[in-house]
Write a protein that binds this DNA or RNA. Sequence first.
DNA 1: ACCTGAACACCGTTCAAGT
DNA 2: ACCTGAACACCGTTCAAGT
Lengths: 211, 211
Amino acid sequence: MAEEGALRPTRNRRGRYPHGALRRALLEEALRTIGADGVEHLTLRAVGAALGVSRSALYRHFADKQALLAAVAREGFRVLRESLVDAWDAHGHGRAGFEAMGIAYVHFAMTHPSHYRVMFGRFLEDVSRDARLAEEARGAFQVLVDAIVEQQRDGLVRDDDPLMMARFIWSLVHGIAMLEIDGRFTGERARGGEVSRYAVQRIRRAIEKER
Amino acid sequence: MAEEGALRPTRNRRGRYPHGALRRALLEEALRTIGADGVEHLTLRAVGAALGVSRSALYRHFADKQALLAAVAREGFRVLRESLVDAWDAHGHGRAGFEAMGIAYVHFAMTHPSHYRVMFGRFLEDVSRDARLAEEARGAFQVLVDAIVEQQRDGLVRDDDPLMMARFIWSLVHGIAMLEIDGRFTGERARGGEVSRYAVQRIRRAIEKER
DNA sequence: ACCTGAACACCGTTCAAGT
DNA sequence: ACCTGAACACCGTTCAAGT
């Protein structure tokens, strides 16, 4: 059920995890629990127990529960950014690339709901506490801004403030993603995938340069 | 700091709240705490203490903490629905009314962040547990669908599936609302109000009937 | 009918102690 | 260096008892 398949590291004969392996194992067990029970039910005790480790062993690798969640979110923003860049590049930039980015964003949320909820679900008290997390989040947003600027340069989209346009697009894909993974789209044709495909068509018209 | 100003009911001379008054007071104190400290820090003990009441007095009026939060959310959806209908009517329906609805949606979230977070923040384990809550949520969404159908009838917007179009618009305003109240829009011109005004302009073009 | 106060089964976090 | 186990200060919820 883990979102990323990974081998669980085994303990060595002294009953210890090799250097850094427990940290990785804690992260993956947290992700697994979040996926199964929700972030709100994540307990450090259960994470420790699942790995056969004391409940305070975690504090060797993370300052506290917030730091564990911040690590989950940071990893999420990194994977999201890579997904966006991949979609943009794989479709040769331009209009097709931009539309693929929109689809990829919602697809990331649907395939990594545990990551996505921690990234945006207000479980992190203070995002700015972890500088590297803030940097990863900024980086993912920048991919969107850069794609808009490039399209403006090529005359494909309107010459509005690229930051404003990026916030507009981000709001849309974020809204679809959140409503989808929270099961808010009901009915037969309610899948977030369909909504995002419809949205991409409409957005094309909303931002294209008028001639 | 309460979102809705209201007089706190006083206890009578037997040290009791009059019928129903404690329920109302609990709701308002919960809202106040959520606004000040966030939903994640809401504790029933603190709510009781603030009202000078035992921590288990609450269980006379709410089945549990979830039921208290569900009541907050239900009230939120009711006020949201009223705000949308008011905006739609006050601007004479049509395009102006629809745009006013979009602005009103984001404005509701910005002026009632505590309500909004409980409504959409995943603190309610199971929305369908409270039938009246599900009904209020459905009612608010229906206002949007009805407005789209009316505009289609008048030839103002495209003849796409109105449910799909409603989900598209809802995702956008929900995304703006969430990112805004979570402080995710940074920078000088970052206010959710500005993003929603920009969005309304772009959406007009996205959904208008092509001639 | 409404509220109290003690009790229960949980939390995250700390810290002296072990290897 | 890494982990344990007891302890601390919190939670939500239950329930017998009071008025």
